[in-house]
């Protein structure tokens, strides 16, 4: 059986390059398709689409909506996409992620949702201070703000009210978890937790995102971490995921699941080659 992998991207990051090299090193063929150049024809038959785009697609678009819609098209034409459109839909939207984590029994910070600024101010009061206001779509810590007190909450919520983003009038306010100045990034592939690392906040910053310049350190995989991370992965549908956890006073809580996981930072301290593990998983999925 010849295995060919199609990588759909809209920007080649370090990760897409690492995956491409790992595919080639295993003697497999890879076709890279820029989603920005695609013209998808709804009337084409499944076989024609498969001939053009392949039978197994790794969807790695940085644009949530672009990736979601490309995956939906491909799946409608019978093509296997990893991660699936459903997993991307859930993980690309924090509102949905929280609902699925709760439903799946994963410990996650209490979150209130509102659909107007006025209700958001009430929600912040109910939750208490500090709490955290997050946009429901988007990542890398952008737009995430700590509501330190009633006054700052009002100001930040009023600023949000004046913006025109598609989802900006959906307010996601999360209980602030007192934690050390770090969180835990894990990479899950299928049913295996393959890597865990601490992400420390950079100087003068409370957010821990690697893209904000956070420092990376190896984190041992304990049974508690393994249990909650795999539970969270299962709750959103599984695949190739970045599950982020925090060390709260009552134990670990999962605050985010990324379906387009960036693992450049994790690779600095991981004992395993994450890109190779991803390719192994794709091969396994191709044979299923």
């Amino acid at each position: 059986m010849t295995i060919a992998i199609t990588l759909v991207y809209d920007r080649i990051r370090w990760e897409e390059k690492a995956i491409s090299k790992a595919v080639e090193n295993q003697g497999l063929s890879i076709r890279r398709i820029d989603a920005k150049e695609l013209v998808l024809d709804s009337s084409k038959g499944d076989q024609e689409v498969e001939r053009e785009l392949g039978s197994l697609v790794l969807q790695r678009c940085v644009s949530y909506f672009r990736g979601l819609h490309v995956a939906s098209f491909l799946e409608a034409k019978g093509i296997k996409v990893i991660n699936s459109s459903e997993v991307s839909r859930i993980c690309g939207n924090k509102f949905l992620t929280t609902l699925y984590l709760e439903k799946g029994g994963s410990p996650t910070p209490k979150t209130l949702f509102t659909f107007s600024g006025e209700a958001a101010k009430n929600a912040a009061d109910l939750l208490g201070y500090p709490s955290v206001l997050k946009p429901i779509v988007g990542s890398w810590g952008r737009g995430v703000a700590r509501l330190n007190d009633k006054e700052s909450a009002s100001a930040l919520i009023e600023m949000r009210e004046d913006t025109n983003g598609l989802f900006n009038q959906i307010y996601y306010i999360q209980k602030h978890i007192p934690r050390p100045p770090r969180d835990i990034r894990t990479v899950v592939i299928g049913d295996e937790l393959i890597s865990a690392n601490y992400r420390y906040s950079p100087q003068g910053e409370w957010r821990t995102n690697f893209s904000k310049g956070g420092r990376i350190e190896y984190c041992e995989i304990t049974s508690e971490l393994q249990d909650i991370v795999l539970k969270a992965s299962g709750a959103v549908g599984g695949g190739i995921l970045g599950v982020d956890a925090m060390e709260g006073p009552e134990g670990l809580v999962v605050h985010e699941v990324n379906s387009n996981v960036e693992f450049r930072g994790a690779s600095q301290v991981s004992n395993v080659d994450i890109a190779v593990k991803i390719v192994d998983y794709l091969v396994q999925e191709a044979k299923r």
Binding site: R11, V62, Y64
Partner: peptide, 11 residues
């Protein structure tokens, strides 16, 4: 020219 970072960009 690279596409500017979009509101829905991320991991």
């Amino acid at each position: 020219p690279a596409e500017p970072v979009g509101e829905d960009w991320g991991e």
